[in-house]
Amino acid sequence: MPKAGTEEASDLDPSARGVAKAAPQQPARTRFRRRNRRLKRWFPYLLVAPAVIYLMLITLYPGVFAITQSFYKVKFGPWRPIGFANYARLLGDYQFLGALWNTFLIGSISLALQCVIALTLAFHTYRDPWIRGWRIVFLVPMLFMPSAVAFLYKLAFLDARVFSDILIRLGLIEHNLAIQSSTWLSRAVLILADVWQWTPFLFIIFVAALQGQDEEVEEAARLDGASWFQIFWNISLPMMRPVIVVALTLRAIDITTMFANVFIITKGGPAFGTETISYFIYRTGFRSFDFGYASAASVVMLILTVIVAQTVVKRAFVSARS
């Protein structure tokens, strides 16, 4: 009997009656507060202003500075305007082009490995009752300082030859692996270090995406006769596509600017075989002190990164929507 119940309740409830009577006693001036329109409009900008100003100081100013500098010859002394000469020189510089190629090679192999490993791990664990534990375990490599990881890998593969020793003990090889004198082995060490440290990043994102998937859909697919792999391939993967693309783009931007590992483990060697763009820029600017030239290289890299990221993300989202 809901009707009678509520009626009785409101009759008996003194506070309800009090409110009902108090309302008309209020001065008839206004019940609604009017806010200052101009303040309302500017308030959000006011809130973000400190962050924006800070960001501009640390990114926009150096950015503009670098772009300006790229049109000058700068070697300690006064700046000498040389137009596009720095850019023209870049196009014919085999070391710059080599660095581009190395960055692409190391980056794409590393990214592909990370993606496959992270997807495999995520798909095998996302309905696991111990997933919280798995997440913590897999997260550990990401928590290390990048330079510390780089030193670990340098020790294990180069300086202390732990890896070689293990292979010799196992009887797989007879002599020490000359990693430092092999371009491909050096690249492999860089790739391995990056995969080890950053696969967890993708894993965590992929697990979250898979956990958001409707369980009923999985059950429907099972009843339709799909195996776990078929469910993954036909349903989970297509649905995860936008997430995968965004996560990979973030990683790709990170890998493109890979510096610490190169600087610590290989120093770009042997024979510039592992020199990435970031390392090339560093070497040009802080070893050869050719600041204008280094700035030009940074600008080229920035433009390339933006173009690639934009097209990839745009593509992925359009096709996921249609």
């Binding site: 409707d214 009923e216 859909v217 059950e219 429907a220 339709d224 036909n234 349903i235 649905m239």
Partner: peptide, 13 residues
């Protein structure tokens, strides 16, 4: 067996 679910469970992709 074929099942019809309350939430339809169609494959959205």
């Amino acid at each position: 067996v074929a099942m019809v679910f309350q939430g339809y469970a169609l494959y959205p992709n």
